[in-house]
Simulated assay, not measured.
Amino acid sequence: MASTSAGAMRALSLELKDLQSQPVEGFTINVNEDNLFLWTVGIYGAPKTIYQGGYFKAHIRFPTNYPYSPPTVKFLNKVWHPNVYENGDLCISILHAPIDDPHSGELPCERWNPTQNVRTILLSVISLLNEPNTSSPANVDASVMYRKWKDGGDSEYATIVGKQVEDSKKEAERDGVVVPETVEEYCVKWCPPQQDDAFDSMEYDDDFYDDYDDGSDNEEGCNEEDEDSGQGEN
């Protein structure tokens, strides 16, 4: 167990350094390095969606055998969403253990595997906020309400989400966080470090990262062609 835990801590330490040196739009990370198995993240609502201006905090808890088993994600503020349980637990395929369960409706390839990481998890969460999976909802009432809203018959879903966005702004103010509200503010620009410096600082471990993939193909942050993606307000 000690060896497994040490391996997980090393993997998490490398991921934290990677995210700090190459930030991604859409979220912030706060980690107490005395406990690498619990991360606090702040997820920003994407511009031009009903979540614009929102600041949704969550805990990511990692198992001691990470990255071979998935972490869990739990929202700390209220999130009315088809794939979020009433208690804040997130239900998403990428965080489900890699087992063959024909009753789940999920393919094994959609579930967790050790090449996934915090970056791909959070990008998946941001995508899920705007495009819920209503085929197997964690919150049935929210799922029904979302489908009615999408069909243009009822605005209650957008109204509830809008109120939660406004409430989350108070949390952002308490945390001293300025939430990006435009595409230009939302997109993060970073300059790749020099190759030698990058390898010195990252201290890559071949055992963990021979097949490492950060899940991001675009060094410039958002793609301008995608600025109108997501669900806009009706």
Rank of each mutant, 00 (worst) to 15 (best):
residue 193 P to H: 10
residue 218 N to Q: 07
residue 167 D to F: 06
residue 165 V to M: 04
residue 183 V to Y: 15
residue 210 D to G: 02
residue 198 A to L: 14
residue 154 D to L: 01
residue 161 V to P: 06
residue 205 D to Y: 11
residue 167 D to R: 01
residue 204 Y to W: 15
residue 149 W to H: 08
residue 210 D to P: 00
residue 145 M to T: 00
residue 194 Q to S: 00
residue 152 G to H: 01
residue 191 C to K: 10
residue 173 E to P: 01
residue 141 D to S: 12
residue 193 P to L: 14
residue 144 V to M: 07
residue 162 G to K: 08
residue 151 D to Y: 03
residue 201 S to H: 12
residue 154 D to T: 01
residue 154 D to W: 01
residue 171 E to S: 10
residue 207 D to W: 09
residue 192 P to G: 07
residue 185 E to H: 04
residue 203 E to S: 15
residue 164 Q to G: 03
residue 188 V to P: 08
residue 148 K to A: 12
residue 170 K to N: 04
residue 176 G to F: 03
residue 144 V to Y: 04
residue 152 G to Q: 01
residue 149 W to S: 13
residue 212 Y to L: 08
residue 184 E to G: 07
residue 174 R to I: 11
residue 171 E to P: 00
residue 167 D to T: 08
residue 184 E to Y: 14
residue 209 Y to N: 14
residue 144 V to K: 05
residue 184 E to S: 14
residue 175 D to K: 02
residue 218 N to M: 07
residue 191 C to D: 14
residue 193 P to C: 07
residue 171 E to K: 08
residue 150 K to Q: 12
residue 206 D to Q: 12
residue 199 F to C: 07
residue 189 K to W: 08
residue 218 N to V: 03
residue 192 P to S: 10
residue 189 K to D: 04
residue 178 V to M: 08
residue 182 T to Q: 08
residue 172 A to L: 05
residue 201 S to Y: 10
residue 147 R to V: 02
residue 162 G to D: 06
residue 216 S to Y: 12
residue 182 T to K: 08
residue 181 E to R: 01
residue 184 E to V: 01
residue 214 D to R: 05
residue 170 K to S: 05
residue 150 K to G: 03
